[in-house]
Every structure is written in C-alpha cells, then in structure tokens.
Design a protein around this nucleic acid. Structure first.
Length: 106
DNA sequence: AAGTTGACTTAAA
DNA sequence: ATTTAAGCCAACT
C-alpha cells in the first residue's frame, strides 16, 4: 500500500481546520485520528509544507510537550489571542487546552 | 541508491 | 521538573 501523501495532507487539513477555538492538538493526536499514530512526524512535516496561506490554524497544533513549533515565534502570541494560556517557560498548558474529542471512536 | 534529517512520541534517567 | 535515548517512517540530500 502506497503512502497517500495527498490523502494524508487532506486529512491533516481537515482535522486541523476542525480544531475548536481556544484548543490545541498534538501531532500524535492528529496522526491518531488519521489512523497512523506512528506518522506523527509526517503530520508536522505536512503542516510545515503548508504555509499560513491556507485557512489552516496550524498554530493550534503543538507537540506532546505542549511546546510550539521550533520556528515561528508568533505562534505563542496567536494562541494567547485564542484564549490559550501559556507556562512561564513558553509551553502551553496542553493538559488543559488539548482538544478532547466529544465522542471518541470506541 | 543509500544515508541523513526531522514543526514527533514515549519512556527512562 | 528537565534532559537523554530509542523508536518511528516519509522526505530530503
């Protein structure tokens, strides 16, 4: 089975675009939703390949550590505007803001 | 073609 | 709490 990068991106876009305001999601979470919890890196890579040109709130996507992307410093400010709180060290309180799906698939 | 890199994750020290 | 290590797999060199 070939890795459908096109579909993968599409799924990522769809999910990331569905992130509620004031919430954040980890790459692993997205990968899990897509059905490939091991492809967390691809999610990040995909988002990196997609600039802000699209309506994708990639700023709401952080890693499991609650840290923002290695680049892009403004992200923190943007999340603050969304209502997300940050730790003094610059990490988001992911434990609080991580998007908890209303109805998980079993 | 083969090796290295990385917007990651989890676990261990 | 933080840092280090290993696992992971597509994309890049």
């Amino acid at each position: 089975m070939k890795f459908d990068a096109e579909e993968f991106k599409k799924e990522v876009y769809n999910i990331v675009a569905s992130i509620p305001k004031g919430k954040v999601v980890t790459y692993g979470q997205i990968a899990w939703l897509i059905g490939k919890p091991q492809h967390s890196r691809m999610v990040g890579h995909t988002l990196h390949d997609v600039p802000q040109s699209l309506n994708i709130p990639c700023h709401r996507v952080v890693n499991s550590q609650g840290k923002t992307a290695p680049c892009w410093i403004e992200q923190r400010k943007i999340l603050e505007s969304e209502g997300v709180t940050f730790k003094p060290n610059g990490c988001v309180y992911i434990k609080i803001h991580q998007w908890q799906f209303q109805n998980e698939i079993n």
